[in-house]
């Protein structure tokens, strides 16, 4: 059951990225799509963190599926912030995404690379997964520190 829901999340995340990048003239939807994608990352993190902390039994398939959600979102992320989507829909995107474009893209690329590396080992047992997940999830906070502002 867990595996199916994670697969669904991964597909939805991929679709969110695909749909919005093909309708570039419509800028009002990006903020909502970004929020949806991040909610999917959050949903995947709930499952991954539960396993990493021993609150749920470790399953190799659930571990890799969760990280694939990360990977899908990370791959689409640099394309989700075109000019004109700086504000609206209560976006918490920080102005630094546009003023420090290179840094922002490097941050998204690092998330993708760390997730790809984590996928190599996340299926190799609980301890390997814990280390892999920790390295991938550290990107959440580091990116949010620089490129996301709190609006409540």
């Amino acid at each position: 059951m867990m595996k199916f829901s994670l697969a669904g999340i991964a597909v939805a995340a991929l679709m969110a990225g695909t749909i919005t990048t093909t309708t570039a003239q419509d800028t009002t939807g990006y903020q909502v799509d970004r929020q949806t994608m991040m909610a999917q990352v959050g949903a995947a993190t709930r499952i991954l963190a539960g396993m990493a902390r021993g609150e749920a039994p470790y399953e190799a398939g659930a571990a890799t599926n969760g990280l694939r959600v990360y990977q899908a979102v990370a791959a689409a992320w640099p394309y989700m912030f075109p000019d004109g989507t700086e504000t609206g829909n209560e976006t918490e995107a920080a102005p630094t995404i546009w003023s420090d474009r290179d840094g922002f893209i490097a941050s998204a690329n690092k998330f993708e690379a760390d997730t790809a590396a984590a996928l190599e080992t996340a299926g190799d047992g609980l301890e390997a997964f814990q280390a892999a997940f920790g390295a991938a999830a550290a990107n959440c906070r580091s990116c949010h520190e620089d490129y996301r502002i709190s609006r409540e």
């Binding site: 949903a43 993190t45 906070r141 490129y147 996301r148 709190s150």
Partner: peptide
């Protein structure tokens, strides 16, 4: 961990507090 109950990740200046 920086994760809220919704598994949003705290950031901005709170990231450093975490």
């Amino acid at each position: 961990t920086g994760f809220t109950p919704d598994f949003d990740s705290l950031g901005d200046s709170m990231g450093s507090v975490i």
